[in-house]
Design a protein around this nucleic acid. Structure first.
Lengths: 225, 225
DNA sequence: ACCTGAACACCGTTCAAGT
DNA sequence: ACCTGAACACCGTTCAAGT
């Protein structure tokens, strides 16, 4: 019965339970076990505490997931204005947003499916929209380009997540494993370029198209020099 | 105890349980109760059967959700080649894909997060890629433009779904309900154009940008006339 | 204030049994 | 072949109780 670990020492003076420690453990658990594997009970177990203890720091699982998102958006990179031109800084930011999917493929769904609802995530919106504003876009233009560029980056992250994720209920993926068996000629021909190894290039292609269009939409019409 | 409905009649000669009837009921249940509300037990109840009976038609919930996706992709519109030019037919198809979110906001997440894995969904890929091929794109170009245009449409559908969906664990949405309280000037200025009422225009804006770029990328270089 | 333990109302799925 | 009923191993969350 007795576990061999820590024989007689005081029962592990575990660090105090805080919102930050809980959110960090939750993200780690999602990374390891997936969103459906991150349960209040397992999370409590990881933290050496009963599941119910978590409810003293978060009113429920929803707000806890919001805190996980707060941690994810911290990985978005905003270069200082002096670092490069507005368009190039924006490109860095968009790349880093999609890059979250590479490090947290199982958590990225939160970014794509949950609303941004916390002050931290709103601050991210603020910096991002400020960057669009720097390009000379008015409020409507900022919204439109944000939806276009942000939507594409979000979908690109999801595409990566879906490609590497072995969700338990997924049926076998012919596209990835047996392309020669596909009875559709176009799909068969394109399959190599839809594989996970090709996602990086496809993302950069899309970025180039979008930023070229954005550059030409925001370039001053006269005084072109 | 006795229910008033159907007093003494034979116990409702319910139609035979088939994969199609189950999938249709599942989609209706998702539309009504959301993805998390569509449980095997409730679905059985809707169909007048024990939950376990469903396992005789589907090996599990994953394949059942694949069947729901099969029903969703049936709503994607492919106009016949005679109807319009390839670019305009493609635009119709992309619009109709994002339109699924308008009719099935709670089910659309399946399209964005689950892999296409059934013959029916592969047939959709085939018709879509064939349309890209008509534009003169090679296999890699088809893949890249599919990722770009399809990703944008997918994200646009998700944006709509997230805007209308009252997920139970969502924290109050300041952006939608109390924009004047937002302490971020850019967010506050742009908020009106991010609301659900503005999504249609933002989607059409994105479509215009993408299709203009696609048109210029596939336009024959010489013989421009 | 912070955590526990038992309980409630659920899940998806397995398995043996019915017809 | 098709469906049922009981059971298993889970969920998120409530509530009363401990310290």
């Amino acid at each position: 019965m007795a576990r061999t670990r820590a024989p007689a020492a005081p029962p592990a003076p575990r660090p105090a339970l805080t919102r930050d420690r809980i959110a960090a453990a939750a993200l780690a658990l999602v990374d390891e076990a997936g969103l459906e594997g991150c349960t209040m009970r397992r999370l409590g177990q990881v933290l050496g505490v009963e599941a119910m203890a978590l409810y003293h720091h978060f009113p429920g699982k929803g707000p806890l997931l919001d805190a996980v998102m707060d941690r994810l958006v911290e990985e978005i990179r905003f270069d200082p204005p002096a670092a490069a031109r507005p368009l190039e800084r924006l490109r860095t930011t968009v790349r880093s947003y999609r890059g979250i999917a590479l490090r947290h493929p199982r958590a990225f769904l939160l970014m794509a499916a949950r609303r941004f609802n916390t002050p931290r995530t709103f601050a991210v919106y603020e910096r991002l929209l400020a960057n669009f504003a720097e390009l000379g876009l008015d409020a409507k233009g900022q919204a439109h380009w944000f939806r276009l560029v942000g939507g594409f980056a979000s979908a690109a992250g999801m595409a990566y997540a879906a490609s590497v994720e072995q969700v338990p209920d997924a049926t076998p993926l012919a596209l990835q494993h047996a392309p020669q068996a596909i009875p559709f000629p176009h799909v068969r021909a394109v399959a190599p370029y839809l594989r996970v190894e090709a996602l990086e290039e496809a993302f950069e292609f899309g970025l180039d198209v979008l930023f070229e269009a954005l550059a030409s939409a925001t370039r001053p019409k006269r005084a072109r020099r």
